[in-house]
Design a protein around this nucleic acid. Structure first.
Lengths: 206, 206
DNA sequence: CTAATATACTTAACACTGTTAAGGAGATTC
DNA sequence: GAATCTCCTTAACAGTGTTAAGTATATTAG
């Protein structure tokens, strides 16, 4: 009686089709410039069909970002699980973070630079297995490794991690939104920020 | 024949009235949650009247941000023109920047965290007397003072300034958009970031 | 094999949005 | 007193996210 499974499979397929269409459009044109009707056109269904699979446009974006975070997590894991000097690993991880954001500017904007709808964050962002926190966890572990290796005299790994995150987020988001600013050189700024915060955290007194 | 001046004065008055109403609503509810009709209601004019004074909603926001930048500039000047250790001045300036952003989250978001409409930036952001660049100039001068005083061995004051800006922007924007993130302590993170980037820039090798 | 039900989708509509075109009172000028 | 100009409004357009109601089709029950 595989009929039920076939139906379920088809439902999942359509759901993914919607997700892919939305993702592609969000990436190309940005969340607020894509309408539900456009997404519907792309998959050749009526606009209201989307609401059978997603609560609203925000949830659609949320799911798209979820997938994006998963990719970021994988990306970071690949880097941070390599052997070698933990400080150098940290450096490479932070730089990879920035480039990942610059490669996916619309998703990055959606994930980190937009106000979170009410009653949204607590459930989705606090649960510890969300890809967002998972990515942050890689950073935290890497910082811990640095402290263990005596490469960083800082009492508080959590504070250090959050500080580092703020730093890389700063470059990433400014390079995304202020493309016309007379940056001395984009790559140079990225390296400068990463080096600066690593130096500051590892040699700092805080 | 003061009739012409009176009319001009009244036009400027209404323009400012629109600006104030828009600013207040933007601050309270955020740019995208405020409609032209709501602004019009507040000043008790028809919605289309606004278009006699501003090209579109984006220009309205731009002007509101312009005023906000002017206040930030004044704020920073007050701090950075005080005598004393330039490194300490820099520190106070950066912390003031962050708090200013946190005190005006919607304006800060509008000014730094939103994509710039096409054909907008070149004219408005590159002209050197814009309050935005003016504020950045204070930072640049302060960094220059630090280098002159031998407190910072870094060859490139421009790169150092941009690096510092990225850092403070990072904390500011993350604290604005991710209010529910389990921050170790908001004030502590601010201080940590500022101290970290200052330490990094002044002791760094880059 | 027919009748009832459940599934998956669509059409039509609502209440909004930013923005523009056309028109209308009231003051100013000739 | 007639024409013009200024400032503002009404009405409308084309779009938005979203919901309620309706319609075929497939599945199940009698």
């Amino acid at each position: 009686m595989g009929v039920k499974e076939r139906k379920l499979r088809q439902k999942r397929l359509l759901r993914q089709e919607i997700l892919d269409a939305a993702s592609e459009l969000f990436v190309k044109e940005g969340y607020e410039n894509v309408s539900m009707r456009r997404i519907a056109d792309k998959i050749e269904y009526s606009p209201t069909t989307i609401y059978l699979y997603f609560k609203d446009k925000a949830e659609l974006l949320e799911q798209v970002c979820y997938e994006m975070f998963s990719r970021l997590s994988q990306h970071l894991r690949a880097i941070l699980e390599q052997p070698g000097d933990p400080l150098e690993r940290l450096r490479r991880g932070l730089i990879a973070y920035v480039h990942f954001g610059l490669d996916n500017p619309h998703h990055y904007r959606a994930a980190f630079m937009m106000p979170i709808p009410d009653g949204f964050e607590k459930e989705k962002y606090i649960q510890p297995d969300s890809p967002g926190l998972q990515a942050f966890d890689f950073l935290r572990r890497c910082v811990f490794d640095c402290i263990s290796a005596g490469k960083m005299h800082c009492q508080d790994p959590e504070l250090a991690s959050q500080t580092l995150w703020c730093g890389v987020h700063g470059v990433t988001s400014l390079l995304i939104t202020r493309t016309m600013f007379p940056w001395v050189d984009r790559e140079q700024v990225i390296e400068s920020v990463v080096d600066t915060i690593i130096t500051g955290v590892s040699r700092g007194t805080a």
